[in-house]
Simulated assay, not measured.
Amino acid sequence: MSALQVYDHAPLGSLIAYSDGAPKPPARFSRKLRDWESRNGVGRLVKKEPPRERPTYSSPACFTLHEGDFGSDGIVIVTVMRTYTVDSALTFKVRERPTVGMVRVIQAVGDNSELIHLAEEMEAAELWLARHPHFNVRLEEVTADVVEGRAAA
């Protein structure tokens, strides 16, 4: 599937795999392996941004994948996010969609929305939000229309 198809059809909270199609190099080639890993991986779809036209530049539509949080003792030191434009040459695949009944914690960021947490149920989402307060947040329950791609992502 292309990046444009992910942008158009995958709902926020989906687990997306991306690949350049190259085979994984042996571990002994650490630099080649590191480069390959930067073009092949998995992340959770957390944001979609429409194309922008400005007087001095324009940017195509894009989406952001959350690849992971790194730290220790429950303290996040680094969050890895990757943003891809809809004209990316990589191949994408939806590995998992959020299931019906899950709750997405969405934060309004300017004109866009960003997924900040995906909970199994409403009670878990409310508990998470109580422990991690955020501004401009809404809770969205995942419906069958969202899972099947018939509703807004």
Rank of each mutant, 00 (worst) to 15 (best):
T64G: 11
N40S: 02
G71N: 07
D111P: 05
K24D: 01
L15K: 07
L15C: 03
N40M: 06
V105E: 00
G110I: 14
E114D: 00
S58I: 01
P55A: 05
A108E: 15
E96Q: 15
T79I: 10
L45I: 05
P55D: 07
R39T: 14
V86M: 06
T83D: 07
R44M: 09
T99E: 14
S72V: 09
R97N: 09
H117S: 04
D73Q: 12
D69Q: 14
P55W: 12
L115V: 00
R31E: 10
V86C: 07
R82P: 04
I16P: 04
V42M: 11
P25L: 02
F92N: 08
S19A: 05
D69Y: 06
E96D: 10
P98T: 01
D73W: 10
P98R: 02
I75G: 00
R104Q: 08
G101N: 06
P55C: 08
A22N: 13
T56K: 13
E37W: 00
I106V: 05
E114Q: 14
N112H: 13
E114W: 01
R44Q: 03
F29V: 00
S72W: 08
L90M: 04
K93Y: 05
V86L: 03
C62M: 06
G41P: 01
S59C: 04
F70Y: 15
G71P: 07
K32H: 06
F29P: 00
V94W: 05
R52H: 08
D20P: 03
Y18I: 01
P55H: 05
T83Q: 10
G74Q: 08
A27W: 07
L33P: 02
T91I: 01
D20E: 10
W36A: 04
V103E: 01
T83C: 05
H66R: 11
D87R: 10
V100I: 02
V105L: 02
P51T: 07
P25M: 04
Y57H: 12
R54S: 03
T79A: 13
D69H: 11
R34M: 14
V94G: 06
R52L: 14
V46H: 04
S88Q: 09
S19V: 05
R28T: 14
S72Y: 11
L15Y: 02
L45N: 03
P55Q: 09
I75N: 12
I77S: 13
A61D: 09
I77R: 11
K48F: 02
I75L: 13
G41S: 02
S88W: 05
P23L: 09
P98Q: 03
I16E: 03
G68C: 10
V80I: 13
N40E: 10
E114P: 00
Y57I: 03
T56M: 10
S30H: 11
D73T: 12
R52G: 11
V80L: 15
E67N: 08
R31G: 00
N40V: 10
Y18N: 07
M102P: 00
V76A: 11
K48L: 08
D69E: 14
G68V: 09
G101D: 03
H117Y: 13
E114I: 13
S38M: 06
A108S: 14
D35F: 10
D20V: 05
V109D: 14
Y84P: 02
Q107D: 06
N112D: 15
R54T: 04
